[in-house]
Amino acid sequence: MTVEITVTVNGTAHTATVEPRLLLVHFLRDVLDLTGTHVGCDTSQCGACTVHLNEDAVKSCTVFAVQADGTEVTTIEGLADGESYTPVQQGFWDEHGLQCGFCTPGMIMTAEWLLKQNPDPSEAEIRAGLAGNYCRCTGYQNIVNAIGAAAKAGR
């Protein structure tokens, strides 16, 4: 059985016929070839696959593609305008908020959402906001600094 869905990703509407069990992350990566969204686990813990679904940050490994039918999805590829980065992206670059880079797309998407909810977060609020995203390289310190810098830049 397959289902036709239409999902607007980074501003472009895409119609595709998919298996009902296809995960949104695999729709993005394998059907649309948007490989910036990563898969880091299979139990919804790591957050590497975080994207925006309408107004929410979601783990796209925990959403079926069919559930995204009719929604607007933003992925890491949809943030920058050419080489003009968002304050969060710029913060990650300026503050050395990444090393291997694998968790980074999910971290950035979470941080974008976090700053929308709370444009002026304390260090503790940033750390709490990252509870759903794992990083094994940075010890989180420069990720926290990056988000703090982005908040400052956005004010």
Binding site: G36, H38, V39, E77, Y85, W93, G101, F102, T104
Partner: peptide, 10 residues
């Protein structure tokens, strides 16, 4: 890497 253009094996 901050724009989703890295290339990992997957």
């Amino acid at each position: 890497l901050i724009t989703g253009r890295g290339k990992y094996v997957d």
